[in-house]
Amino acid sequence: MPDQPHPGDRNAAQRVADHAGIARLADALVPALVVKLATANLGEVEIREGDWHIRVRRPAGAGPRRERPHRASLPIVAPPGASLPAPPVTDEAAADGPRQEPALSPTVGMFKPGLAPGTRVRAGDRIASVDLLGIALDVVAPIDGTVVEVYPQPGDGVEYGEEIALVEADPEPDANAAGADGAAEG
């Protein structure tokens, strides 16, 4: 941000205000921008507010980082003291096939279907939505690829963080083409 003074020039009160501003942006604005960027098929979105501006750019061919890497649909009843299953390591687990990543529910609510299995998506595309008291919140694709499975039925209640769909990455261009295609179909 070239129009900002050097951080060292800020006094204590300004720094507190800066941190509060950044926290507010991170909490409220950035997720909204990411969704906007993903759904509007834009390459870049920029917002200006007071002293601050924030620019979110979509790198060509790269999906947004997944915020929460764990699996949400854990068995709920377990004896106290029992250790919970470790989150699956999707990248490594898929070592002998294309990478698969789940798309997670952004909230607790009623599932509304969107794309059917087999649909190709880019990271950030809306796969389905979850209805939070009448407001549809998007379930977005975590990576570029193909929707291979959608778990809930229309009208099912889903919880926050629940796995809604599975997206399989496109085969690596330099990988053995026939082998990768075979795995994608299997």
């Binding site: 909230t107 607790v108 609510g109 939070l132 008291l133 209640g157």
Partner: peptide
């Protein structure tokens, strides 16, 4: 979120 959880 709380009300939605009660509904579903």
């Amino acid at each position: 979120a709380v009300i939605s959880a009660a509904m579903v």
